[in-house]
Amino acid sequence: MSFLLILFVPKNRIREAHLSFLFKQVITWLFGLLVVERNLITYPYRLFFRKANKSSFTFEYFVYPAMCTLFNLHYPENKNAVFKFCHYFLYSGVITGFEAIAVRYTDLINYKKWTWYWSLITMWFTFYLSRIYHRWFFKDKLNRSIVE
């Protein structure tokens, strides 16, 4: 993810990237803790903060926010609804696909009272929330670029 961020975040949009990253961390902290504390998902093997937090630190606080950064920076703002739907589906679907593989073939994630489609729905929803926030925060910049 670090390599992808270096490669796909333009220097003139680092401020936007930083905001998207931090906002997604806030959202995933809330939803991630809610899901693990209600015992819907467990993470039997965690590399960081094993005793401090039951959620997956690597995914919740780095991988997912980094994906959200790329999602917001490369959002097809001036395209039609089909492109926008595909953008949401691509990002949510790729993460859900990797999660489903991890559930099936590794001990990194165990679904207790959870399924892949709940992951897809919650990821779609959190991408939507971050998109709304991003548009609101940078509304002057978006309006200026549309006019020019």
Results as ranks from 00 to 15, higher is better:
85 F>A: 14
89 F>A: 15
125 F>C: 14
53 N>L: 12
89 F>W: 13
59 F>N: 13
144 R>D: 08
124 W>A: 05
54 K>Q: 14
23 F>S: 11
128 Y>V: 04
106 T>G: 06
106 T>N: 08
94 V>M: 11
32 G>E: 04
124 W>V: 00
6 I>T: 07
36 V>G: 03
19 L>H: 07
28 T>G: 03
111 Y>V: 07
96 T>E: 06
107 D>A: 06
142 L>H: 10
96 T>D: 05
2 S>C: 02
23 F>P: 03
99 E>H: 00
16 E>S: 10
84 K>Q: 14
49 F>G: 04
37 E>H: 06
87 H>F: 12
81 A>E: 13
9 V>P: 02
139 K>V: 14
122 T>R: 10
75 Y>A: 09
33 L>P: 01
94 V>T: 12
24 K>C: 10
97 G>M: 04
48 F>M: 08
101 I>D: 01
13 R>G: 01
121 I>K: 09
137 F>R: 13
46 R>G: 06
63 V>Y: 05
118 W>E: 12
38 R>C: 05
16 E>Q: 15
37 E>L: 09
140 D>H: 08
56 S>K: 09
103 V>I: 13
40 L>Q: 11
26 V>N: 00
87 H>R: 06
31 F>S: 12
97 G>T: 09
42 T>Q: 13
77 E>L: 12
48 F>K: 03
62 F>Q: 10
12 N>W: 06
64 Y>R: 00
117 Y>P: 04
69 T>G: 08
7 L>M: 07
18 H>D: 02
44 P>E: 05
138 F>L: 09
9 V>D: 03
101 I>E: 00
69 T>L: 10
92 S>R: 01
121 I>Y: 13
42 T>D: 10
85 F>N: 08
39 N>R: 10
53 N>Q: 02
144 R>G: 00
44 P>N: 07
92 S>E: 01
87 H>I: 07
81 A>R: 15
143 N>C: 03
88 Y>F: 15
34 L>D: 06
140 D>T: 05
49 F>E: 06
62 F>W: 12
14 I>F: 12
52 A>K: 08
146 I>V: 14
139 K>S: 15
105 Y>Q: 03
67 M>E: 04
96 T>L: 07
96 T>N: 05
47 L>W: 10
144 R>C: 01
53 N>G: 00
2 S>W: 14
43 Y>S: 01
37 E>P: 00
100 A>K: 12
55 S>R: 00
27 I>H: 02
